[in-house]
Each structure stands twice: as C-alpha cells, then as structure tokens.
Amino acid sequence: MPTLLPPVRYTPDLEDVQPGEGETVQGLNETFDTIIETTAEDYGHAVRGVHAKSHGILRGVLRIRPDLPEELAQGMFARGGDHPVYLRLSTNAGDILPDAVSLPRGLALKVLQVDGERLPGADGATQDFVMVNGTVFQAKTASEFHSSLKLLAGTTDRLEGTKKAMSSVLRGVNSALQTVGIQSPTVNALGGAPQVDPLGETYYSVTPFRYGDYVAKFSLAPVSADLKALCGETIAVDGREDAIREIVREEMRKVTATWELRVQLLRDRAAQPVEDPTVEWSEDVSPFETVATVEVRPQDSWDEELVQEVNEGMRFSVWTGLAAHRPLGNINRARRDTYRHSAAFRQVFNKCPIHEPGAR
C-alpha cells in the first residue's frame, strides 16, 4: 500500500462561497414548499420534503474507540465512550410512494449526549449524520440540484402508475450500466435504484465535514454476520406498498445489527474536492478508517411509540451537532436553511413540536 499523505488541516479557505447562494436557497425553499404543501394537503399530515417515507426506527448504542490516533481522535471522537443513538431508515422521495418505485436508501443517525461547542442554532446535545447508500451526490452545486428538484416537484404525489412503470424500466437500465462498470446517481434518483434491503447497505455522507483539526467524509458499513448476509439482497415487493418496512420489521425482531462508523480524511485537495460532491474520494488516496461501532439489539423497528417520538417529533439535519463537525461545501451550506424550513412547516401543520432529545 502506498504511503498516505498527511491529512489536510481545516481552514476556512477550503470552502469557496459563490455569489448568489442566498438566492438559490430561497428558490430551494420555494420548491420544497410546493412539495411539502402538496403532500400535506393530500395526506392531511405534513411529511419531510425529502426522505419522507420511513422504513424503520431503531434504538442502539454508538461506541467510540478509546485508542484512536491523534488524526482520528477529533471532535466528538476525541474520547472513547458509549452514546445512545436513534437510526431512521428511509427512501429519498418527498412523497410517500409504494415500494414498487425503487429509490436510493437513506440512513439518518442521531447520537445523544454529545458535549462541546454547538453549531449556530443547534439545540440540545446531539450529533446528526445523514447518509445515503451511494458515494456521490447527484448534482455538483445547490443550483444544479434546484433545477432537478423543480422537475420532480411537478410530479409530487402524481402519476403513481407512471412512476412504477418507469422505475421498472430504469432498474433494467441501471443493471445494464452496472455490467459495464457505470454507476448513475441520476438513474437511481429517478427510480432505477436496485431494490436492496436497507439493512445490508453501506451508507455515505457524500459531502465533507470539518473533523476537528481536519476534514472528512463519513460512512456507516455493516459488519455483523446478520447484516453482512443481507448485503446486496433484494426485496420482493409483490404488490405490497410497505414491503420494505415489513421486511425490516421481520428481520430486526431477530438480528443483532452492528455497523462501523468510518472516517475518510481529506489528504489531497485536488483529488478530494470540498465543493464538488459528484466526485468520489478515492480510497487509494485516503481509505475509510473505523472510529466507532453502532450496535442495535433485536427490537420492533416499527414500534408505534418510537415512531411517534422519532419520525414525528424529531428532525435529522447535518447542521445539528458540534462546531467541530461543521458541514462544508455548497450543497451543505444550502441544506442549513432548507432543513429548518421543512421542519418548521411540519411542526406548525401537524401541531407537533419538533425538538432535540434533552432540549424540550
């Protein structure tokens, strides 16, 4: 294995803030309003603007390794110890679609009892990680993402039959692309993602974050035998609208689930751009390194009380956490206000306060 470059130290000039980002965020909020207002009117209940459909809510524990080297012992990982966590499994659409429409999987992780200087507006003592089962984002900038989102907003909660048919076709396209080594985030996002079991997937932050004195991306990878056996396994939907939720619930009643939380440090500014999340950071340049494990014991992944507490009463945001893990890059900067905007609408419409655990 070649000798790795030392990690790049964090400095504010790693980011390149462009003129017009404020206008883009305003446009994103307006487009998200189209999505969340449409779904709220149809459902009589407000849901998230993205990752609206949840497939499972879990409780577990995160164990930070006590013997990390200096470059990994940063921020909340500076000291070993155990932290309670919540996990939310989802797919990425802003409307609640039948599972026959196959979309990328998402996993949001909320770590509790995290002490330290907070990001502006981040209440409580928590640290959120928001990840998907892909290594890159579908758009280079928030402006490009907004252009795609406007097209999707026009189909929100409409054309369900067309979406099912298109999803079937796109899965075939995706399979053909994969046989020649091509991965397409765009095809996945439009409904061509493989119908994989979310418990067997590896998840990625896709965008970079400050990592104490350094900069990193995050990943959550399954390592227990029960989860590794599900890697790549597909789910037969069989006409069931909530097949994924049903399968996850059945599996979590009997499996012990363990993931490794891994960190990929920024070591080469040219090969690992901060401002372009469409570029995958090569593991040849900087491999993922384990800093903690997440363990979830067998449980009911659709417990009514827990679903109400987490799915309805909490939000997951990359801007909820420590200043030592500040989100970086154009996409992350745009997420700050749009996440809050969506959560504020849900809170008002549903008359259900959204809060961080321990910050009621």
Rank of each mutant, 00 (worst) to 15 (best):
M1T: 14
P7N: 13
T11Q: 15
D16W: 00
V25S: 00
G27A: 11
G27P: 11
E30D: 14
T34G: 14
I35W: 07
E37I: 09
A40I: 02
D42K: 15
G44E: 06
R48N: 15
S54E: 14
I57L: 08
R59W: 12
V61R: 14
V61E: 15
L62W: 03
R63E: 15
I64M: 04
R65I: 15
P66G: 09
P66L: 09
P69K: 11
G75K: 00
A78D: 11
R79D: 10
G81W: 00
D82F: 04
V85Y: 04
Y86D: 03
L89M: 01
N92G: 14
N92K: 11
P104F: 03
R105Y: 13
V111P: 06
L112I: 01
L112E: 10
Q113E: 15
G121T: 06
F137H: 12
F137M: 04
A139K: 01
L149W: 11
G154D: 11
D157H: 14
R158Y: 11
G161N: 14
K164V: 13
M166D: 12
R171S: 04
G172T: 10
V173R: 02
L177S: 03
P185Y: 13
P185A: 11
V187S: 00
N188T: 09
N188R: 12
L190D: 03
G191I: 03
G192F: 07
D197G: 03
T207F: 01
R210I: 00
A216V: 02
K217V: 05
S219G: 08
P222D: 05
D226C: 03
C231P: 08
C231H: 13
V237C: 06
D238F: 11
R240Y: 08
E251P: 01
M252D: 08
K254I: 13
V255S: 13
L261E: 02
R262W: 07
R262H: 10
D268I: 13
R269A: 11
A270Y: 08
Q272N: 03
D276W: 02
T278H: 03
V279Q: 06
S282H: 00
V285C: 11
P287Y: 05
F288W: 08
E289D: 13
T293N: 02
V294D: 00
E295P: 05
E295R: 12
E295T: 13
V296T: 05
L306W: 03
V307S: 14
V318C: 07
G321H: 04
R336F: 07
D337Y: 09
Q347P: 00
F349S: 07
K351T: 12
P353V: 03
I354D: 00
